[in-house]
């Protein structure tokens, strides 16, 4: 085990909004240092560099040379290329979901990460949210008996994917709402039940926003390896006037009880009296899972721990997502690859 005082961390791609939140979190961690940002879009890199007082690098290789670890928050389709480069250089990786957009890429990454013995952590942030973690502890502790059903929503305000063009450009995102919002719930279900998803059935509906190239509305039924049933609604169909960004809810039904999670429910209501803001908005005061996620990443690097969600969990998320598309296309339940 080598010792560093500070984990020198660089950003490979900041096209995803979450980059800002992770950077803010890193800034509050004494054992971490933000050392540079690369993005193929120089404008984005510049904006990020101004916001977080960090130098930009036009050349990813150069940035990699001065880093111990990288955060990959690029467009989905570039995750694989960036992660492979970083892993080849032996850098630790914190990777935004979905890990990759093809299963082949996912498997390649699993192999490479195992070979290089780096810390690879998926940004499955719901494993760090205190409410979903508590729910898991209660289930694992047997409080609702045997877990039988998990029904979740992870819906998004439809205006958000429009803020960055790549979200709705299939060549960069890999797809729409299914690609974006299957994995948080499928991963929570795997994490809570300790079972794999063995069957996926998805209905992709007509779009709420017909102008999009990608789908924004879907419903997925899953079966887990232990026979329990799950359901995922990750549609981007909340109204653009929705008081908050979206939700993560989860109903866990057991043989002895039921548990219901509404993870981002802790908000105070605010109504401005001034136009145009004179509508109800919510100010969230619940836990900050992004901070806990980034802290864990840094601690795993320094202390040799294991991240809550690793490269294999990333791969499984990709498998469920792709099975979902296949099911919708073929009109039948599909077993994830």
């Amino acid at each position: 085990m080598y010792l560093v005082e500070k984990v020198r961390t660089g950003f490979l791609g900041v096209a995803h909004f979450h980059a800002d939140s992770y950077a803010q979190s890193l800034k509050t961690i004494p054992q971490a240092e933000l050392v540079g940002v690369f993005d193929r879009d120089k404008g984005l890199a510049h904006e990020f560099s101004q916001k977080f007082s960090v130098p930009t690098y036009d050349d990813m290789e150069k940035l990699l040379k001065i880093c111990d670890a990288v955060v990959i928050t690029s467009e989905n389709a570039l995750h694989h290329e960036y992660a492979v480069k970083a892993a080849e250089e032996g850098k630790h990786i914190l990777c935004e979901k979905p890990m990759t957009t093809t299963l082949r890429d996912a498997d390649e990454l699993v192999g490479l990460v195992e070979k290089k013995r780096i810390v690879f952590q998926m940004c499955y942030v719901m494993r760090y949210h205190t409410v979903t973690s508590l729910a898991r502890d209660l289930v694992v502790g047997g409080r609702i008996g045997r877990l039988l059903v998990m029904v979740g929503t992870n819906k998004l305000n439809r205006s958000l994917p429009l803020l960055r063009a790549w979200f709705t450009d299939k060549s960069l995102s890999g797809g729409g709402a299914v690609m974006d919002h299957t994995v948080h719930l499928s991963d929570l279900m795997r994490w809570i039940s300790s079972a794999e998803v063995v069957e996926v059935y998805t209905e992709i509906g007509r779009n709420a926003n017909p102008k999009l190239q990608v789908e924004d509305s879907f419903l997925t039924t899953v079966v887990m390896g232990d026979g329990s049933i799950g359901h995922i609604d990750g549609s981007w169909t909340y109204s653009s006037g929705h008081y908050t960004w979206g939700d993560v809810t989860l109903e866990l039904l057991g043989s002895e009880g039921v548990l219901q999670v509404d993870a981002f429910r802790q908000n105070v209501y605010f109504i401005s009296s001034e136009k145009p803001d004179d509508r109800l908005v919510w100010h969230y005061y619940g836990c900050n899972p992004d901070l806990l996620l980034v802290k864990d990443f840094i601690q795993c690097i320094l202390g040799g721990g294991k991240p809550r969600a690793n490269v294999y969990d990333g791969r499984q998320g990709v498998a469920v997502t792709l099975a979902s598309y296949q099911s919708s296309m073929e009109g039948r339940p599909v077993r994830p690859g």
């Binding site: 029904v151 209905e203 992709i204 509906g205 007509r206 419903l219 359901h231 609604d233 039904l253």
Partner: peptide, 10 residues
């Protein structure tokens, strides 16, 4: 248009 209906006696 799609729909999901959960009915629960459990």
């Amino acid at each position: 248009s799609i729909a999901v209906i959960e009915a629960n006696w459990a």
